Simulated scan of single mutants.
Amino acid sequence: MDEPKDPQNHSDPQVRSLDARSLRGLAHPLRMQLLNALRRGGPATASQLAAKLGESSGATSYHLRQLATHGFVEDAPEHGKGRERWWKAVHRGVRFDDSLLKDSDPAVRGAADLFLHEVANHHTQEIATWLGTGDDWPEAWRRASDMSDWTLSLTPALAEELVHRMHDLVQSYRAQSPGDGAPDAEQVRVHTHLFPVRMD
């Protein structure tokens, strides 16, 4: 998911904050895949998404309706030329609040755990896809890709500051985006993971 945790971006109307109800509506593997597909690929029909994701159109139709009930997707009538319903994502991303992991309702805690694990799984799949298809890309994109990690010794306050600064840096490049008009512009995925580890 785009921007699953972005404490610096609370005023961005294109990033939706998840609450207990909307989280329960989103925390399903296929719903998260459908929402990702609409955000990255643009408006589509249930049948198109079913073919893309290897699902039945009945399943994609049902879960798209559930996403619509919770305000994550909406009709895209400007794309429809026949009887089939077109859908589009409402927001660019979602923001996850850690307090959902400690909610008094076990169903909310379970949904929060599922959501975060699905985000992690999606990141792993994207990296694996890049490693498997990297040779299909021009050499300039091979040089421009990155898969790095570091180990630092930080306090929680310094770690939170680092997260905020990384998010700010990424947002500054969103503002510089050349758009679809640049001949060599592509969508790129940026993952950030910061977490403590025990060095036993």
Rank of each mutant, 00 (worst) to 15 (best):
62 Y>H: 08
82 G>L: 04
88 K>S: 00
40 R>K: 06
97 D>A: 14
96 F>L: 10
91 H>P: 00
7 P>L: 08
21 R>P: 00
63 H>Y: 09
16 R>V: 01
60 T>H: 07
54 G>Y: 05
42 G>N: 09
88 K>L: 02
101 L>D: 12
25 G>D: 06
57 S>A: 15
95 R>K: 03
117 H>K: 10
64 L>K: 04
96 F>M: 06
90 V>F: 05
35 L>S: 08
19 D>G: 01
93 G>A: 11
117 H>I: 05
9 N>L: 01
120 A>G: 07
20 A>Y: 06
80 G>F: 01
51 A>M: 07
87 W>H: 11
72 F>E: 02
84 E>C: 00
56 S>F: 02
36 N>Y: 14
22 S>A: 05
96 F>Y: 08
116 L>Y: 03
116 L>M: 15
116 L>S: 04
45 T>K: 04
21 R>I: 02
17 S>M: 10
75 D>W: 07
110 G>V: 04
11 S>K: 01
7 P>D: 07
96 F>P: 12
51 A>N: 15
98 D>S: 02
63 H>C: 01
8 Q>V: 15
22 S>I: 05
114 L>H: 13
71 G>N: 05
87 W>Y: 11
15 V>E: 01
69 T>W: 03
57 S>G: 07
95 R>Y: 01
114 L>N: 11
57 S>M: 10
68 A>C: 09
64 L>W: 02
56 S>G: 08
15 V>Y: 02
74 E>H: 02
21 R>N: 02
105 D>C: 04
61 S>Q: 13
10 H>C: 03
85 R>I: 05
62 Y>W: 06
48 Q>V: 14
62 Y>Q: 13
65 R>L: 06
70 H>R: 05
90 V>T: 10
91 H>Q: 03
115 F>W: 09
65 R>I: 01
34 L>A: 08
47 S>K: 11
76 A>I: 08
106 P>Y: 01
